[in-house]
């Protein structure tokens, strides 16, 4: 099977790297189902900690899911027309605008959160509502939505397709619904999965913006690490994994599909 020393070396390096990444994860997950971490796995396997996490942090989990969904809706409503506008009017101005939308990626989440707090911190009702965190998430995830739709739209001759539809009697709204949206779908899907995944996992911004009554999944994670026993923190990680890994896999699939169309 293994033909040469070079191949053997490659395999060893790869496996070592994998082990380096996987073992801590596996350890952590195992800790989450171990009856007593200090005694080791021999103390028995239990789901007690997982249930306890659920009792303590179910609100965080639901808040995160709700936020991700709301974030998706908002980025879609803003992102699709924005990407369409940028694709239909290419030029230096669009490029500048695109960079501008992408700016929140370059600015650290903490700085972004600070800016939001300085500007809106005094508006009590808004400051303590979940929509405040939503604003931060939208700012952070919008460029991903816009860019992935834009990539698909830019790959086709949108102008001529629309002209063709117009010559067949389609009004501007019909052209948008029948031609632009269906053809942008792979980009929308890839963007949507990215937005949801990022929103669920976002910590930086959210940690600054959250209130004690509004903890998202990652904020709760940090909280459990800081204040709970190790088994509970580990069980929390396990729940986080179960939620995020399928999303990541779906995202991979969708973006590779979008890329195939864009090429």
């Amino acid at each position: 099977m293994i033909k040469s020393k070079a191949k053997l070396l490659q395999l060893t390096v790869t496996l070592t790297a994998c082990a380096f990444l996987f073992i801590p994860t596996v350890m952590s997950v195992m800790a989450g189902v171990t009856a007593n971490y200090f005694k080791g796995i021999s103390s028995g396997v239990t789901l007690k900690w997982v249930f306890q996490v659920w009792e303590l942090y179910a609100d965080s989990i639901f808040l995160s899911l709700w936020l991700a969904l709301a974030c998706l809706v908002v980025t879609f409503i803003i992102g699709l027309p924005a990407a369409y506008g940028l694709a239909r009017h290419p030029g230096w101005f669009s490029r500048v605008l695109e960079e501008f939308i992408s700016l929140p990626l370059a600015v650290p989440g903490l700085a972004l959160a600070l800016a939001l707090l300085q500007l809106y911190g005094t508006m009590k009702g808004f400051r303590t509502s979940w929509t405040f965190i939503l604003v931060g998430h939208v700012l952070y995830t919008l460029p991903f939505m816009v860019r992935s739709i834009l990539a698909v739209l830019a790959a086709m001759d949108l102008k001529t397709l629309e002209e063709a539809a117009a010559s067949l009697g389609a009004s501007p709204p019909r052209r948008f619904l029948n031609i632009v949206v269906p053809n942008a779908m792979p980009g929308i899907l890839a963007g949507a999965l990215t937005v949801v995944t990022l929103s669920i996992g976002e910590f930086n911004l959210t940690w600054m913006l959250h209130t004690p009554y509004l903890k998202t999944l990652p904020v709760g994670l940090a909280d459990s690490y800081a204040s709970m026993r190790l088994e509970i923190a580990s069980a929390y990680t396990l729940i986080f994994f179960i939620m995020i890994v399928p999303l990541l896999m779906a995202m991979q699939w969708a973006s590779s599909r979008a890329q195939r169309i864009a090429n």
Partner: peptide, 16 residues
């Protein structure tokens, strides 16, 4: 254009 009732064949065909 959408009210003119013309048929157009584009250079790139522009099929949907």
């Amino acid at each position: 254009v959408e009210d003119r009732k013309v048929g157009m064949v584009f250079q790139s065909y522009a099929l949907f």
